[in-house]
Design a protein around this nucleic acid. Structure first.
Lengths: 139, 139
DNA sequence: ATATTTATTGCAATTATGTCGCAATATTAG
DNA sequence: CTAATATTGCGACATAATTGCAATAAATAT
């Protein structure tokens, strides 16, 4: 078993949740993938489990900090959280829908930390979404 | 008539949209208020207009850049855009739900512009949402 | 290993959220 | 004030998400 799966199972166990086929399948559907809309996640898993179970699993994973919801316009997509994948931000093209995941940028991260500190907050997480027009669509 | 309403009416006129009771009411429901969920916006206006009209007005206002959708967790809320209210970001407390609108921070804005430019994007808009624990809840 | 306990799933029904066509009405332009 | 046009309100529809519960799978104790 690889490292991320070991971490996942440890996290489920230590919170007294069972390790099930559905929970592993949802995790596998997300790992090293582009963020997925619920519709697509449900579709990808429809041979393995049903819609309600996908929703329940995503809710659980979100509470455990295993996944995060990523808002694009007024839809959202699901991706594994920073614990299982590199932290990054997103830039989406308003014309063609292209979605780019940026590398971590310590400059922005630092500024965001400073901003939170200025307001007396202990920071837990943050999301930065940028909308624009990609180089292809500018032409 | 005050300045923001004059601006709104000018913007509707110049785009060949009528100035209606519904459109003014939606604007008034948002100005100088905390961001509102669609559900609450519809509820607040149910004496004046119906759900479909609120949705249509919000869609129109979004296209015209009068309002923007703001994502908090996995819901979204509507607020007036930077044109009618100062540009800002949000920090929300995961414990008590406190929502703080930050002042503009030119440092972060600059970084975000640079990040978009690095990927060849012409930036249209962005949202930064921060979750943490507020100073009150830390105690 | 097996039985028992407990958590999870799959299904169907339900609720919530968002959209659409169209006749009635309000707004704008002349 | 009237005619032309845009907008609204309604009901019907479509899609997204949630819930209760019996059947099933997983964890625990033996």
């Amino acid at each position: 078993m690889d490292n991320v799966h070991a971490t996942l199972i440890k996290q489920l166990n230590s919170n007294n949740f069972s390790v099930t086929k559905t929970r592993l399948a949802v995790f596998d559907a997300l790992i090293n993938k582009e963020p997925l809309a619920m519709k697509d996640l449900v579709l990808n898993l429809d041979k393995i489990t049903d819609r309600a179970s996908v929703y329940r699993t995503v809710d659980l994973y979100e509470k455990l900090g295993i996944v995060q919801r990523l808002n694009i316009g007024w839809k959202y997509k699901i991706e594994l959280s920073d614990k299982y994948q590199e932290h990054h931000h997103h830039i989406s093209c308003s014309i063609c829908g292209l979605l780019i995941s940026t590398d971590g940028d310590s400059h922005i991260e630092q500024d965001i930390n400073d901003l939170a500190k200025k307001h007396g907050f202990k920071i837990l997480s943050h999301q930065l979404e940028i909308q624009g027009v990609c180089s292809n669509c500018i032409k």
